[in-house]
Write a protein that binds this DNA or RNA. Structure first.
Length: 670
RNA sequence: GCUCCCGUAGCUCAGCAGGAUAGAGCGUUCGCCUCCUAAGUGAAAGGCCAGUGGUUCGAAUCCACUCGGGAGCACCA
């Protein structure tokens, strides 16, 4: 019986007793973890609420402690419960039958639902993340998006959801046009020359996306003084959108090469995708026209005939309070007949939900080293063997909080077209940006104005070339980690050492980005991001590595977990052990390890990966303490030794599963 | 002008379907490797939870207002 199951039984018992004994109907019953193990394993502060409800119903005042006493009797009759205490003004503190719990959970799967995620009958959800404009390399702000999205999809899978991961490619936008302008009009290169340049860069160990990063900045600077060049941008943008011309072909090469580079960067962080939907296909397959038809038919959009918006198709949007300058209605089709970004996004969101009535064509894009396939949309139907994409029950869009307003419009627009699915089918997983401290910006070599220097943080900007590039940071982390590994395991092979350094770098970066809750602005600090000590991914990995080394030693001695279970027998001696002070200490490790499933559920429900990150750290810290306090292998009391081993095993399996859900691997040694 | 987010230890952050003594990490000071990995660990110091008022048996947590800081409100994407 898992912890979640026991909790449900307890809740039911509380609810039944409240109804039978007091005539009170409880809807939600809050269960909390007491601050200390001495105060029990689960606490219900429910008697206070009941006293209030009874007073409302009958007008009679009742004593919370007396209510708690009655509930106590009901809960104590449950098999999994050892005893119940009424504490303080009326807390109901439940203590499990510890030895029975250990026997039932010692070999339990820490995340029992995760296997269901591969089952085609499980509900499907889509998670869109990354979506970096394919005109330059990714920076640390993009990585926050990707790590958040990737971790969240892992959390959803751990709860048994079937997940499709999409990375939207805006390959026809102005950002791509700007780099194309740079190649054609500043560098005077044609497609063949760009391909040659790409080959040169690759041969020199450099990357195309880094080259574009600099070129993009250069174009931005040039625009400030060169009006002629700015006019070229509009021309280029138009040619790209139209397609079927040399400029569009050049742009496609540039965008695709950048996508490949960004996918490489993300793969270094264990981030993979299922599908890359592109804006070019949304245009060429006329997704918007279909959405437009539906919206007109349903009357959720109308043609404005007078006023400032005359000639535009607009969607009423009352919730947004406009002022004199900003209208309250949102324009979806401009007076010149072109569709706005928001309009396209509504059509795309409809496709994701499977209510557009159109589909993309697909072709295979790339096979990852682990065999996973990623597909890309295509205008031509040139592959008939592809998985079914889109049509998710719920859609999670990982997009930073600055886009809350447009996301809100998309959600409301889609809900207007499909009221039965409603707004709840579209979830904006918003997060605050990663910014630079003024000091960090200067460390990167940027000149700041006096005004900027006084600001709490400086926003990163791809246009200005201001940002910490993802690969640079990963490289620095790997270099630092390698030096540490070198110092500890000089005799290992280079390949082993590099692999460990890589795993540590990934752990450090992912944990660093996940420990902050979504609505906290991360003011990037090199020292903190590069740290391997304290509250870091490395700390958690180290804890797991130490745990594994215990079991490596055990295996060398030909001892197994089955032996431990045999030693425990009927559990009478275990119950005696858990009743002592040291036993209580051991118990608290076991019960914390058993809370992983509950924590993952909570992180999923609240759309907050940081909850899992914090738990993982807490678990690692608890294990370090456990490891420090109990010398497991040399323990002479047989029963205690067996219990220590079983609990250590629970902890390391929970820790490993928690880390895996965060996208962090456990190195073989550190 | 309107909307949203943030304000908790010297610094960076958790805690916020109201509940037990407000927690971590970094930094500071003093300790711990004959023993399963010291990337570890013990202890100390450090708090009017921005302010005011309200709701409540009970508020860091909910409500209102005020003050600071940030983001957003396009026929841009």
């Amino acid at each position: 019986m898992t912890l979640i199951e026991i909790q449900e039984i307890l809740r039911d018992a509380v609810r039944d007793t409240a109804r039978k004994e007091f005539g009170v109907e409880l809807t939600q019953i809050a269960a909390e973890t007491p601050p200390k193990t001495e105060l029990g394993d689960i606490a219900f502060p429910v008697a206070f609420e009941m006293a209030k409800l009874i007073k409302q119903a009958t007008g009679e005042k009742s004593n919370p402690r007396e209510i708690a006493e009655k509930l106590k009797a009901a809960l104590e009759s449950i098999a999994q419960v050892g005893r119940v205490e009424v504490a303080g003004p009326g807390y109901l503190n439940v203590f499990f039958d510890r030895s029975a719990f250990l026997a039932a959970n010692a070999d339990a799967e820490p995340l029992p639902n995760s296997s269901k995620s591969a089952d085609m009958s499980s509900p499907k959800v889509c998670v869109e993340h990354t979506s970096v404009n394919p005109n330059k390399s990714a920076h640390i702000g993009h990585v926050r998006n990707s790590v958040l999205g990737d971790t969240f999809q892992r959390i959803l899978k751990a709860t048994g959801k079937r997940v499709e991961v999409q990375n939207y490619i805006d390959n026809t936008g102005v950002q791509v046009a700007d780099v194309v302008v740079g190649f054609i009009f500043i560098e005077n290169k044609d497609l063949a020359e760009i391909k040659a340049l790409d080959a040169e860069l690759t041969a020199a160990g450099k990357t195309f996306d880094y080259y574009c990063w600099d070129l993009y900045t250069k174009v931005g600077v040039e625009y400030q003084t060169n009006e002629e060049l700015k006019e070229k941008r509009a021309e280029v943008l138009h040619l790209i959108e139209e397609g079927g011309n040399p400029t569009a072909e050049l742009a496609d090469f540039v965008a695709t090469r950048n996508v490949e580079c960004i996918l490489d960067t993300m793969e270094r962080l264990s981030i993979q995708y299922d599908l890359l939907p592109r804006e070019s296909e949304i245009l060429h397959l006329h997704f918007w026209d279909r959405a437009f038809e539906q919206m007109k038919k349903l009357g959720v959009i109308h043609l404005e005939t007078e006023g400032k918006q005359a000639g535009c198709w607009v969607m009423p949007f009352e919730e947004h309070s406009g002022n004199d300058e900003n209208e309250t209605d949102k324009i979806l089709v401009r007076s010149n007949g072109t569709v706005t970004y928001t309009g396209k996004d509504i059509a795309y969101q409809m496709w994701k939900l499977g209510i557009l009535g159109l589909d993309f064509n697909y072709r295979h894009f790339h096979k990852y080293a682990n065999g996973h396939d990623v597909w890309i949309t295509s205008a031509e139907a040139n592959s008939n063997e592809h998985p079914a994409f889109g049509g998710g029950e719920t859609i999670y869009n990982v997009i930073d909080s600055r886009q809350s307003y447009p996301q809100d419009i998309v959600r409301k627009g889609v809900a207007a077209i499909s009221p039965e699915r409603g707004e709840k089918a579209s979830i904006h997983l918003s997060y605050e940006m990663v910014a630079l401290s003024p000091a960090a910006a200067e460390e990167l070599g940027f000149q700041l104005s006096d005004e900027d220097r006084k600001r709490p943080f400086i926003e990163m900007s791809g246009r200005k070339g201001l940002g910490v590039k993802a690969d640079d940071l990963i490289n620095r982390l790997e270099t630092n980690a390698l030096a540490e590994v070198e110092a500890r395991h000089a005799d290992s092979s280079d390949e082993v050492k590099r692999n460990i350094a890589h795993q540590l770098a990934v752990g450090a970066l992912r944990y660093f980005l996940l420990k902050f809750t979504r609505n906290t602005v991360i003011v990037f600090d090199f020292k903190e991001a590069l740290s391997f000590e304290g509250e870091t991914g490395c700390f958690c990995q180290y804890s797991a590595v130490r745990a594994n080394s215990i079991f490596r030693k055990l295996a060398e001695r030909n001892e197994s977990l089955e032996d431990c279970r045999a030693i425990i027998g009927d559990g009478a001696a275990v119950a005696e052990l858990f009743a002592t002070e040291t036993g209580s200490d051991i118990w608290s490790m076991a019960v914390l390890a058993a809370r992983l499933e509950e924590t993952v559920e909570q992180a999923s429900k609240q759309n907050e990966p940081a909850i899992l990150a914090k738990y993982t750290f807490q678990l690692a810290k608890a294990f370090n303490l456990f490891y420090h306090n109990h010398k497991i292998l040399v323990e002479t009391d047989n029963v205690k030794r067996a219990v220590l081993i079983l609990v250590a095993d629970m902890a390391r399996r929970s820790l490993t599963a928690a880390l895996a859900t965060l996208g962090i691997e456990v190195p073989e040694k550190m």
